[in-house]
Design a protein around this nucleic acid. Structure first.
Length: 402
DNA sequence: GTCAATTCACATGAAAGAGACCACGGTCTAGTG
DNA sequence: CTAGACCGTGGTCTCTTTCATGTGAATTGACGA
């Protein structure tokens, strides 16, 4: 675009009518006025947490449910309402919401407590202090400002997996020492099975009450999407069938409403960029592809060099072989490549872990298989479509500086 | 032919080391009155 | 005398390595029919 046109472009851009009315309604952090199809869960959660308002300690609560089933939404909604009442009645309630998945915020014991302290308005160095010390600071704050503290730990499974189950035990133990304040913990988790390996004491203290969130079915997702659409989009922008398809897609992905909403938003953006007046099914398909591509690219870019190199090996081998690949082959290739890249080759043990990480990010599919006499290995294939292969390869070459 | 033992090629776990980052307290240094 | 620079110590955290143990079915080989 020539420079002299740019001003015109921006002006056009401003006056151009957008398909959206209130795009925020489609963002992940948006809390709608009313939450549909979750009445039962809201009532349960509210019932369990209500004692807070009377300065009674409620039971610790545990919430299960797959991603996008509205756990966080329900929790935020209920806590908002509690805070509203608390403000009216001048009840000292503090609610701290922490997402344990966010790196460098609450993924270790130290950081979790440090973050809690920060939320309560005191500064703590990000590292350098002994963990006991941080506990002491936390304890003192609680003793000095008596309150009912509700800690919501989202994705608590990540925290426990990385940092062990002692944290929860320690937090619940603080309670018995506290005279003025009380702590209640709410754990939110995606996986139903994660409590299996943890200390029974921790389990019982955490699991005093539990609420399970079933996945939405296609019809429910349709309802939710329709509701969001009326606020988010202008009238009659969404063509018939789009919402239905969007819902069907999400229902296939274990009823993930968040995905469905994101899909709809991206579809809107795609249509808008094409200067269309409506969003139709082709936009939806394009959006699906775009989301997938962006996700993969985003993950790859944020990976460390070693992981990128490992992935590059997989891509290269796959280009030739077009079949499932085994760990051994990758490691051989990887060792060769390291020389060219000026990388210190890691041990096979580490590469094995890196492969597991890539699997977790959904970049590759790996499955442990036994080939009988010929050993046991991971069978690996790429998790993105082959049409993206060359693009990904180029991206990797660029990242690695080949 | 049948069945248990063997074997392969890694997976998976645990522990511990290296190196980065950081806070804290003590010591040293230079600037100030 | 004091503020700031500079060290040493002790702490966390991430990424790795090292060592050890586990694993599941194809293969092997002994055994009996």
């Amino acid at each position: 675009m020539a420079n002299n046109n740019l001003v015109g472009f921006f002006k056009d851009y401003l006056t151009e009518d957008t398909l959206f009315q209130n795009k925020k309604a489609l963002s992940t952090s948006y809390t709608p006025q009313e939450i549909s199809h979750r009445d039962k869960e809201i009532d349960q959660v509210a019932g369990i947490l209500a004692p807070l308002l009377k300065y009674d300690k409620p039971s610790n609560l545990f919430m299960y449910g797959k991603t996008g089933t509205g756990k966080t939404l329900v929790m935020k909604y209920v806590t908002q309402q509690i805070l509203k009442v608390a403000e009216e009645k001048k009840t000292a309630i503090q609610i701290i919401y922490l997402n344990c998945k966010l790196k460098r915020i609450a993924d270790t014991e130290y950081r979790l407590i440090a973050q809690l302290i920060r939320e309560m308005g005191k500064e703590v160095p990000p590292t350098g202090l002994p963990t006991d010390e941080v506990y002491n600071i936390f304890y003192k704050i609680l003793e000095n400002n008596p309150c009912m503290l509700l800690i919501v730990l989202d994705e608590i499974d990540q925290l426990i997996k990385k940092a062990g189950d002692e944290i929860i035990y320690n937090l619940t133990r603080i309670n018995s020492d506290l005279k003025e304040s009380q702590i209640t913990i709410v754990g939110i988790s995606n996986s139903l099975v994660f409590t299996d390996g943890i200390d029974p004491r921790v389990k019982s203290s955490l699991n005093e009450e539990e609420v399970v969130f079933p996945p939405y079915n296609a019809l429910q997702i349709q309802d939710i999407l329709k509701e969001r659409c009326t606020t988010a989009f202008k009238k009659d922008v969404i063509k018939e069938g789009v919402i239905e398809k969007c819902a069907a897609y999400a229902a296939r992905e274990h009823g993930d409403a968040r995905r469905a909403i994101e899909l709809l938003r991206v579809a809107g953006e795609v249509a808008e960029r094409k200067k269309k007046k409506v969003v139709d099914i082709t936009d939806l398909d394009e959006a699906e592809e775009k989301i997938e591509k962006d996700r993969v690219i985003d993950v790859i870019k944020t990976q460390p060099k070693q992981s990128q190199a490992a992935l590059y090996c997989i891509v290269e081998i796959f280009e030739v072989k077009r079949k499932k690949i085994h760990t051994g082959e990758i490691y051989e290739k990887y060792k060769n490549i390291c020389g060219n890249l000026n990388l210190r080759p890691l041990t096979q043990r580490r590469i094995s872990d890196i492969l597991a990480e890539l699997d977790m990010f959904g970049i590759i599919n790996s499955q442990v298989i036994s080939k009988g006499r010929y050993g046991r290995t991971k069978e690996i294939s790429l998790a993105f479509s082959t049409s993206m292969l060359t693009k990904i390869k180029k991206l990797l070459q660029q990242e690695l500086g080949i």
